[in-house]
């Protein structure tokens, strides 16, 4: 079986490796890593002594102190945690759209997800994958290791765009299911099939994740044609998810479309901003590594400025 590295462009990953992912919040990790945890526990670097109380594992009693002072103390270490990241991917039919870009939105999202996963793996962070359409469909828990990365990439390879989208519903399900705090990266076009799934429903769903103490980053993937609507003359427009057909003079309705899109994106952007959710809009005609590099660099600079 060939190595599933379709979505791992070496030149892209080489560029991303030097940047690092600076998390805004410190989350709990399974393994010691580069990320400091507010929880004191048992690790390598000594922090302080604390008087032993029943219930603490007797393995952590400092026997040297007991010999000198005849008192029970336990050692406390400053624990280092890893990042627990979940990549949430929209695999609905609309993500298969491509007109002006070099690849479909799903392919673009997969490239981004694979790059992020590889980065996590290099940093010894845990990473997982959730795919959704109308509902949450597949859940790959966050783990470390090269084997896990391989499984994730195979999963990405096997994704096909199909079905309708109800991203808010899927996000609610994810929020209910995820137990521990994690960084949730949403890669989607944010276009839902249901009429009621507007910007407000989407923001509510993302807020649900935030409410569960998760860090949320939304990476919206859009094709250039969706951003400019460059069609002319009389056009029959078929919806990729519902197969509904609308006939109109595309040139004549372009203004209306772009105004509506602008309002929709503006609502999402302001909703994310007010709730501390990271947001970025990706144009699939732009190389994904450049997009990711720019975004992660900006996050890193933001984190550094806050810690200073």
């Amino acid at each position: 079986m060939p190595e599933p590295t379709r979505y791992l462009k070496p030149e892209a990953l080489a560029r991303l490796k030097n940047l690092g992912l600076a998390a805004r919040l410190v989350v709990e990790g399974l393994f010691a890593g580069q990320h400091k945890s507010p929880n004191r526990g048992f690790s390598i670097e000594f922090a302080e002594h604390r008087q032993y109380t029943p219930g603490i594992d007797p393995r952590h009693i400092d026997w040297k102190v007991l010999a000198r002072r005849d008192k029970y103390y336990v050692k406390q270490y400053e624990e280092q945690t890893n990042l627990r990241c979940l990549l949430l991917l929209d695999a609905s039919a609309s993500m298969g759209y491509r007109d002006g870009g070099s690849m479909t939105k799903l392919e673009y999202a997969c490239f981004c997800a694979a790059s992020l996963a590889y980065l996590m793996q290099v940093q010894h962070d845990a990473f997982g994958l959730i795919t959704c359409r109308e509902r949450m469909e597949h859940y790959m828990p966050a783990r470390q290791g090269h084997g896990h990365l391989r499984m994730l990439l195979e999963r990405l390879e096997s994704l096909e765009p199909r079905g309708r989208t109800s991203l808010p519903r899927a996000l609610h399900e994810v929020a209910e299911r995820l137990g521990r705090r994690a960084l949730v990266v949403v890669l989607a076009d944010l276009f839902s099939t249901d009429e009621g799934d507007g910007a407000k429903a989407l923001i509510d769903a993302l807020s649900h994740l935030r409410h569960r103490k998760h860090e949320v980053v939304v990476l919206q993937m859009l094709d250039p044609s969706e951003l400019t609507f460059p069609f002319g003359d009389a056009t029959q427009i078929e919806d990729m998810e519902t197969n509904d057909v609308i006939t109109a003079d595309a040139e004549a309705v372009r203004r209306h479309y772009l105004e509506s899109l602008d309002a929709y994106l503006g609502a999402i952007r302001s909703g994310c901003l007010s709730r501390g959710i990271g947001y970025a809009l990706a144009d699939t005609s732009e190389p994904f590594d450049r997009f990711l590099g720019a975004y992660l660099g900006r996050r890193h600079r933001l984190a550094m400025s806050r810690s200073a």
Binding site: S192, A234, A252
Partner: peptide, 26 residues
């Protein structure tokens, strides 16, 4: 009559206002 058929990712913005706009343009 020379109608071009395209498949688009969504039609969520093609609402009543859109139809009115198309009719006005026609």
């Amino acid at each position: 009559r020379h109608v071009r058929r395209i498949t688009f990712s969504h039609t969520r913005f093609f609402d009543e206002a859109f139809i009115r706009s198309a009719r006005r343009a026609r």
